Computed example of a mutant assay.
Amino acid sequence: GRAGLNLINLDDVPGQIAVRKIALQSGFLPGDSEQVLGKAALGAPITPTSFSALADRTRLAYG
């Protein structure tokens, strides 16, 4: 996770309504497949002091 962005995938199991609701509230988004929720993770805590460096690193790596 320290190398940059990672994609966290969560299986969206039919009938798991509470899990889906909490995942969506936690920033997961529906993926291309109806059965997967995804969320990007930086692998480092985002704080006011680290934000600029993380943003620059992300722009450099991913445009």
Rank of each mutant, 00 (worst) to 15 (best):
G1Y: 05
G1W: 01
R2P: 03
R2A: 13
R2D: 06
R2Y: 03
R2H: 13
A3L: 11
G4W: 05
L5D: 04
L5H: 06
L5W: 05
L5E: 03
N6T: 10
N6Y: 10
L7G: 08
L7K: 14
L7W: 05
I8E: 12
N9Y: 01
N9R: 13
N9L: 04
N9A: 12
L10D: 11
L10R: 07
L10G: 06
L10F: 04
D11A: 07
D12I: 00
D12A: 14
D12T: 02
P14D: 13
P14C: 11
G15V: 04
Q16C: 03
Q16R: 15
Q16K: 12
Q16M: 04
A18Q: 03
V19I: 05
R20S: 09
R20Q: 09
K21N: 03
I22V: 14
A23V: 04
A23N: 08
L24D: 00
L24K: 02
L24M: 06
Q25D: 15
Q25S: 12
S26R: 13
G27W: 01
G27R: 07
G27Q: 10
G27N: 07
G27M: 10
F28M: 09
F28V: 07
F28E: 07
L29I: 15
P30S: 11
P30L: 02
P30T: 11
P30R: 13
G31F: 04
G31W: 11
S33A: 12
E34D: 14
Q35L: 07
Q35Y: 11
Q35K: 06
V36K: 10
V36H: 06
L37D: 11
L37N: 05
L37V: 03
G38W: 11
K39A: 06
K39Q: 12
L42G: 08
G43L: 05
G43E: 11
A44P: 08
P45E: 13
P45M: 04
I46R: 09
T47N: 01
T47A: 08
T47G: 03
T47L: 14
T47M: 06
P48F: 09
P48T: 00
P48N: 08
P48Y: 07
T49W: 04
T49S: 12
T49P: 02
S50I: 07
S50M: 09
S50L: 11
F51R: 13
F51N: 02
F51W: 12
S52G: 13
S52V: 14
A53D: 12
L54W: 02
L54H: 10
L54G: 01
A55M: 13
A55P: 00
A55F: 15
D56W: 10
R57N: 10
R57D: 02
R59P: 00
L60M: 09
L60K: 11
L60Y: 03
L60W: 02
L60S: 14
A61E: 06
A61K: 15
A61Q: 15
A61D: 09
Y62F: 15
G63D: 15
